[in-house]
Design a protein around this nucleic acid. Structure first.
Length: 674
RNA sequence: GGCGAUGUAGCUCAGUUGGUUAGAGCAUGCGGCUCAUAUCCGCAGAGUCCGGGGUUCAAGUCCCUGCAUCGCUACCA
C-alpha cells in the first residue's frame, strides 16, 4: 500500500453548540478526528485539524439571561470548557474557531453576499395561520374546530417575510453527485439515508430571522432588519477558518476536506452544505464521515437518567490513552456503541495490561537479562533455517492497519495490531527463549529471537500512535527510537522497512505501561453502574424517553431546562386558575397515539372528568390508577386525537421525562390547591 | 400512525456479492510454561443465527409476514 505524498488533508469536527458542557459524544467525535488526523500525518500528508464552538442563537441568549450574563460572557465561558478539554485528551487540533469571531462573521457576510448576488437567495413572504395570543404559526391540522387550541380564537392569516436559499433547484445535481461518488457520504447506511431524504422534493431553505425575533446572530449584509439563521452561520465555519475566499490556507487545504459528524446532523452536512457550496461556486468537501451514538449503561445519555458522561472525569480515573483506546476499540465507526465502566475496565485489563503492556514488559525484561538491554544482532542463517523471522507477520499487521484506517475502521486497525501482539506471545511461547538461554551454544539463536521481538515492538509502538500517542511515545523512548525532524512519530513509510532497530541500541528498563485496574475503582460520581438502579426506580420499567440528541451538533439544540421565565403576572391573574386535587380512576392509551393517555378523573363532582394527558411515555396506565394529581379544573375543554379533554394535569418536565405532582397524604377529590 | 434501523454463544459484537462442520474477544472448565503486569500458550463446552412462510441444488445472508427493541416524525390542554 502506498501513501500519496503531498496530499493535503483538512479534518473537521462540527462546531459544538455552547448550550451545555462537553460530554462523551463530543469527546468521541473529536477523538475520532484526532485519530484520523494523526494517522494522516503519519501518512506524510499535510494535515490541518479544526474544531470549535457554535455560539449564536436564541437559546444562547436565554441561557445567558438566566445566569444574569451577557451572551458574550456566557459563550466565552462555555467555549472555554471545550478549549480546556481538548489538551487533556491529547487532541492535536491546529485551530479552534468560534462563530463569534470577527473573521468568521466577515466570511459569513461574504458568502451570503456572493450567493445573494448570484440570485440564489430570494426574499419571500409566506402566508400562515397565526395566533397573536400564542405568537406563533399553526398548521391547519393543529386547530380545534378551526380555532386556536390555546385561546379558542379564530387565528389570522398573516404574512411573514424571510430570506430563502434556492436549495431545491440543486436537488437533482446533488443526487447525481452522491451517486457518482459512492463514498461522498460514508458509511453507506448514511448515504442511503440521505438519498432517501432526497427522494422527496426538497424545499428551499429559510435562512433568516427578523431581528424582532432574534438578535444574537449575524446581520444579513443585504438587509439590516434580519440576522442569518443557523446554517449560513454554523456551516460556514469550515471555510472561514481557512480564510475563504483568498486565504492561502483555503487555497491549499480545502481540496482535502474531511468532515466528521454524528448521525443526528447528516442532513445539514449532507444536503444543505453541499448545495450552499455549489451555489457559491466552491468545490465540495471530500467526504462526510458519519458515526453513531454512545449509549451509557445501556440507555441513551440523558440528564434525567443522570448518565451524561463527562470525558474529563473518565480520563481522570482511567487515564487518557485507555480512554482513547476504549472509545476507538469499542465503537464500530458508524454504528452505536455502549459505554460502561465494566467494559472499560475489561478492555484495560485484558487488552492493555495483559496483552500490550505485558508483551512489552516480557520482551524488554528478557533483553535486559540476556543482553544487558542492548539490541542483539540477527544471525540470518539461523533465522532462515529455523523460520524465526517475524517480518511477514509485521507486514500483515501494517497492511491490515492501513487498510482499516484508510476506511475509518479504527476498531479494525486496532484489531490488526492486537492480532500481531497475539502472534508475538505465541512466538515467545514456541521459541522459549528462557530454554535457549540455558545453552551457551545457542546464543545466536537467542539473539535472533530477541532481535525479532524488539523489532516487532518497534512496529507495535509506532502503529498505536494515532490512538495512544502518549503510550506510543513512551514505548519508543524506552526502545531508543528517534525520528527525523524531531517528530514524535514515524511515518508509515518509515515503519514498513524491516530490520530497522540498530544493533547495539541501548534500551531502558521496562516500565509498567498499564497497571491492572480493580473493577471497583469507581471514582466518577456519574458511574453508570450505580445510576442504573436509580433509573429503573424513576421510570418504572418504562421505555426511556429519547434524549434529545446528546451529541455534537451544529446547533438547533434545545437545552433541557433552560426555559426562560415568562413575564410577571398579577396575583389576580393567578387566581383565575382553579387548581384541584383529582383522583385518577381509570387510564387507557389512546389508539394511534404514542404519548396520549385518556384518564377518568374524580374531582369531587357529580360526574367524572375525561382528561387527555401527554404522559404515556413516562407512565403506564396501570401505575396511575388511584394516584392523586393537581388538575387545572377550569380550563376550556379541547379535543385531541378525537378525544375531548376537560382539564389538564400538571407534571414537571426536565426536558425528557415527565413527573406527576403528588401529595404527602390522601385528600378528598376536588380539594382546592393554592 | 408514517419512515428507518436492529434482533447471531452467558456478555459485547464480526459475518463482504447466498456456497463446506456459523466466527472473535471476554467469561467458564481442564491442561502446559515460568521470560513477563498471577501475565502467556493449548484444548474444551456451549448457538432453533427472534418466530413463521417463500425463492433456490444451497439462506444467518434474498423476498413476504409476525413479534421485540431503538431512532426520526405527528398528536403532547
Amino acid at each position: 500500500m502506498t501513501n500519496k505524498a503531498d496530499k493535503k488533508s483538512f479534518y473537521t469536527t462540527p462546531i459544538y453548540y455552547v448550550n451545555a458542557k462537553p460530554h462523551l459524544g463530543h469527546a468521541y467525535t473529536t477523538l475520532s478526528v484526532d485519530v484520523a488526523a494523526r494517522y494522516s500525518r503519519m501518512c506524510g500528508n499535510e494535515t490541518y485539524f479544526l474544531t470549535g464552538t457554535d455560539e449564536h442563537g436564541d437559546k444562547i441568549v436565554e441561557a445567558a439571561e438566566k445566569q444574569g450574563k451577557t451572551p458574550r460572557e456566557y459563550t466565552d465561558e462555555i467555549s472555554q470548557l471545550f478549549q480546556n478539554l481538548w489538551p487533556t485528551l491529547n487532541v492535536s487540533n491546529n485551530d479552534f474557531i468560534r462563530t463569534t469571531n470577527l473573521d468568521h462573521i466577515k466570511v459569513v457576510e461574504h458568502l451570503l453576499t456572493r450567493i445573494y448576488d448570484a440570485g440564489e437567495i430570494y426574499f419571500s413572504e409566506y402566508e400562515g395561520i397565526y395566533c397573536f395570543g400564542c405568537e406563533r404559526f399553526y398548521q391547519e391540522r393543529e386547530l380545534v374546530d378551526g380555532k386556536c387550541p390555546d385561546h379558542g380564537t379564530e387565528p389570522q392569516k398573516i404574512k411573514e417575510a424571510n430570506y430563502f436559499f434556492a436549495m431545491s433547484k440543486y436537488q437533482d445535481w446533488l443526487i447525481d453527485h452522491i451517486k457518482q461518488n459512492p463514498d461522498f457520504i460514508r458509511p453507506e447506511r448514511y448515504r442511503n439515508e440521505i438519498l432517501s431524504f432526497l427522494k422527496e422534493p426538497l424545499e428551499d431553505l429559510c435562512i433568516s430571522r427578523p431581528k424582532s425575533r432574534l438578535t444574537w446572530g449575524i446581520t444579513l449584509p443585504f438587509d439590516d432588519n434580519y440576522v442569518t439563521y443557523v446554517w449560513f452561520d454554523a456551516l460556514t465555519n469550515y471555510i472561514s477558518a481557512l480564510g475563504f475566499p483568498d486565504g492561502e490556507k483555503f487555497n491549499r487545504l480545502w481540496c482535502g476536506a474531511e468532515h466528521f459528524v454524528a448521525k443526528d446532523i447528516i442532513k445539514p452536512h449532507g444536503i444543505y452544505w453541499p448545495t450552499m457550496l455549489k451555489a457559491a461556486g466552491i468545490d465540495l468537501y471530500q467526504h462526510l464521515n458519519v458515526h453513531g451514538f454512545w449509549n451509557v449503561g445501556g440507555s441513551k445519555m440523558s440528564k434525567s437518567i443522570g448518565n451524561v458522561t463527562d470525558p474529563a472525569e473518565v480520563t481522570a480515573v482511567y487515564g487518557v490513552d485507555p480512554f482513547r483506546y476504549f472509545l476507538m476499540r469499542e465503537m464500530v465507526f458508524g454504528l452505536d456503541a455502549n459505554f460502561t465502566e465494566d467494559a472499560i475496565v475489561q478492555r484495560i485489563n485484558s487488552d492493555l495490561a495483559n496483552d500490550l503492556g505485558n508483551v512489552f514488559s516480557r520482551i524488554l525484561a528478557m533483553n535486559h537479562r540476556y543482553f544487558k538491554g542492548q539490541v542483539p544482532a540477527v544471525v540470518e542463517t539461523i533465522e532462515e533455517q529455523k523460520g524465526l523471522s517475524l517480518r511477514v507477520a509485521a507486514d500483515e499487521a501494517i497492511q491490515g492497519f492501513q487498510q482499516a484506517m484508510n476506511d475509518n475502521a479504527f476498531h479494525k486497525g486496532l484489531i490488526s495490531i492486537w492480532e500481531f501482539i497475539a502472534i508475538l506471545n505465541k512466538y515467545i511461547d514456541t521459541t522459549a527463549p528462557w530454554v535457549v538461554a540455558k545453552d551457551e551454544a545457542r546464543k545466536d539463536e537467542l539473539a535472533t529471537i530477541l532481535y525479532n521481538l524488539v523489532e516487532s515492538l518497534r512496529v507495535v509502538s509506532s502503529l498505536i500512535y494515532p490512538v495512544m500517542p502518549e503510550t506510543s511515545v513512551k514505548m519508543q523512548q524506552i526502545l531508543g527510537m528517534t525520528h527525523p525532524h524531531g517528530r514524535e512519530y514515524p511515518t508509515m513509510n518509515e515503519i514498513i522497512p524491516w530490520n530497522q532497530i540498530a544493533v547495539g541500541t541501548k534500551m531502558e528498563k521496562p516500565r509498567s505501561l498499564f497497571p491492572r485496574v480493580d473493577s471497583h475503582k469507581s471514582a466518577a460520581p456519574s458511574s453508570p453502574a450505580e445510576k442504573k438502579d436509580v433509573t429503573k426506580a424513576i421510570s418504572a420499567s418504562k421505555a426511556q424517553h429519547p434524549a434529545p440528541s446528546a451529541l455534537p451538533s451544529t446547533g438547533e439544540k434545545k437545552p433541557a431546562n433552560n426555559e426562560p421565565l415568562k413575564p410577571e403576572i398579577a396575583f389576580d391573574d393567578f387566581t383565575k386558575i382553579d387548581l384541584r386535587v383529582g383522583t385518577i380512576l381509570a387510564a387507557e392509551k389512546i389508539k394511534k397515539s404514542n404519548k396520549l393517555l385518556k384518564l377518568s378523573v374524580d374531582l369531587g363532582e357529580e360526574s367524572h372528568r375525561q382528561i387527555v394527558a401527554g404522559i404515556a411515555k413516562s407512565y403506564d396506565s396501570d401505575q396511575l390508577i388511584g394516584k392523586q394529581v393537581v388538575v387545572v379544573a377550569n380550563l376550556k375543554p379541547a379535543k385531541l386525537m378525537g378525544e375531548t379533554s376537560q382539564g389538564m394535569i400538571l407534571a414537571a418536565n426536565d426536558g425528557k421525562e415527565l413527573f406527576l405532582s403528588g401529595f404527602t397524604a390522601p385528600l378528598p377529590a376536588g380539594s382546592p390547591v393554592k
